[in-house]
Design a protein around this nucleic acid. Structure first.
Lengths: 99, 99
DNA sequence: AAACCATGAATAAGGCCGACCTGATCACCG
DNA sequence: CGGTGATCAGGTCGGCCTTATTCATGGTTT
């Protein structure tokens, strides 16, 4: 699924009277809000879906794949995601003993 | 940031004429759509923000922290997230040599 | 619809960091 | 108020990150 597909799916969820442009604004607003929350709080938690959190990684040693020489990977900041129980169970494989 | 804060921030992004309830529906629609995309495609990619992907993890050996005895962690399915370059740079620390 | 630019995936190998297990507790969320 | 989520113990295994190139895809603009 890409962004266009996501917008289409959001439109379905919002109801068919919602325009595609409106759904697009909703998607962009949510992504921007998550980004803003990470900038301000370092963490965005949506219970049941998951938690985004800013991670600082210390400098470490890596290998340059071209030269095979060790090199220093500088300290960096990235964003991690811990999946919540609702999302985890939503993607779980079907139960074998469901019937 | 929690879900209520996220909804408030989304409302700001959508414009002040958008109600809180409307912003909440937008948030829920986006989360549901991402969930649906993961169920159907196994992956949801938003260029610049990041990519959610369903991961199957094989069974592996772990340690029961209570008993200190090795135990088998059963195969499972979870959701990973690879941060996109836009989000990564949005949370990056300020440049020291910006001026 | 087409064009154009940006983003992202894949690949090489090594070393380090993070996920995950259980069970209890507490805080927070909705 | 009930459910979710974070924390903690320690060992093992999987994933991250490096560079440079190429190609595919995505997304916005025209």
């Amino acid at each position: 699924m890409n962004k266009a597909d996501l917008i289409t799916e959001v439109q379905k969820h919002l109801g068919i009277e919602c325009s595609k442009a409106h759904a697009e604004r909703a998607v962009n607003a949510v992504l921007s809000a998550v980004t803003r929350g990470l900038q301000v709080d370092g963490e965005v938690q949506v219970v049941g879906f998951g938690t985004f959190h800013v991670k600082d990684r210390a400098a470490r040693t890596g290998l340059n794949p071209q030269t095979k020489q060790p090199m220093q990977i500088p300290a960096s900041r990235t964003v991690g995601f811990r999946v919540g129980s609702g999302l985890r169970s939503a993607v779980a494989p079907p139960r074998e003993d469901a019937s």
